[in-house]
């Protein structure tokens, strides 16, 4: 098998490209790093990484693997149900992100939570067997009933205040259902770093659990998309990520070359997708698999 040589912003990106080209999983390939890039904030680099790779000799290459490398179709067979719903959500994630381009933002917002809940409902319904099968409350038009805004805020705030107390911390928790449908919570206070965590990891986990706690009380009713901030950490990071994305976008426009970003959380990817979607001449796509899923920005 011949060697392919790729270059990208990071060794990982270059490896991913090479593996995509070869159509094999990392384990089945022989990879040599030819050149390391210099790292920077959010994957901004000065020199490209270069790797060369080939299919490792003597290893048969299953077709399944090939599809896998393309970033989808994680599992098959036994876990069909589970993986279906997850894969679905991945592709929804990408599709709705993509769709945001050129369509009004509100449309995307309306779509996303529905898809989310539909998928989230599957495993839980499975997990709890026949106990209280959550009948989705619908009105005459078949549309989902809305959970009252103040109830959404109250449930979220109670959860967050309880969490702050359990941590033995002191914080003021605020929440509101904004006009754009975002259920925004913020905890303010001193010394709340533990609730934020490296790369906002803890904050994202708390947000996920908060969303779940609200979903649980909602029992099938509509509720806002949950956004949680602690001591402004998320807005600071979002602002920095937006600055970075603008700079990367400008460089794609200038050079006409694709830029592959570092792996990011789905929430960070959403920010990038949404921002680039507002620009006319660029497209984004997420490639690879969690937790190494990353965005490619390319000319439209």
């Amino acid at each position: 098998m011949e060697w392919v040589e790729t270059s990208a912003k990071t060794v990982e990106s270059a490896t991913e490209l090479a593996l995509n080209e070869l159509g094999v999983a990392e384990a089945d390939a022989e990879i040599q790093v030819l050149e390391e890039p210099k790292p920077g904030l959010f994957g901004r680099v000065r020199g490209n990484a270069r790797v060369k790779a080939r299919v490792a000799p003597l290893t048969p290459r299953p077709k399944q693997e090939k599809r896998r490398r393309k970033g989808k179709g994680q599992d098959s067979g036994a876990e069909a149900d589970k993986s279906d719903s997850s894969d679905q959500s991945e592709s929804d994630d990408r599709k709705s992100d993509g769709r945001a381009k050129g369509s009004p933002k509100t449309a995307t917002r309306d779509d996303a939570p529905k898809a989310d809940r539909k998928n989230a409902a599957k495993p839980s319904a499975k997990g709890e067997n026949n106990r209280g099968a959550r009948n989705h409350k619908t009105n005459d038009d078949g549309e989902r009933e809305m959970m009252p805004g103040d109830e959404q805020v109250q449930v979220g705030c109670a959860f967050l205040q309880g969490l702050v107390d359990a941590f033995g911390l002191d914080a003021q928790v605020h929440g509101e259902l904004r006009e754009d449908g975002i259920l925004a919570f913020e905890a303010r206070g001193e010394g709340l770093g533990l609730l934020i965590g490296p790369g906002l990891g803890t904050l994202d986990s708390v947000q996920e659990i908060c969303r779940n706690a609200i979903q649980h009380v909602a029992e099938g009713r509509e509720y806002g998309k949950v956004r949680l901030d602690v001591a402004g950490a998320r807005s600071d990071r979002t602002a920095a990520l937006e600055e970075f994305t603008k700079a990367e976008s400008a460089s794609v426009m200038d050079s006409g070359d694709d830029v592959i970003l570092e792996p990011m959380s789905r929430m960070d990817r959403k920010i990038v997708h949404d921002l680039v979607a507002g620009l006319d001449d660029l497209d984004t796509e997420s490639v690879g698999e969690e937790p190494r899923r990353r965005i490619v920005i390319r000319p439209a």
């Binding site: 495993p123 709890e128 990891g201 779940n212 649980h216």
Partner: peptide, 22 residues
């Protein structure tokens, strides 16, 4: 248990992350 584990263990991982922080 299904609610606590979540899809692909996402909920379980979130709970672990937050508990370790505490």
């Amino acid at each position: 248990m299904g609610r606590v584990i979540g899809k692909r263990g996402r909920m379980a991982n979130a709970i672990r992350t937050v508990t370790r922080a505490a």
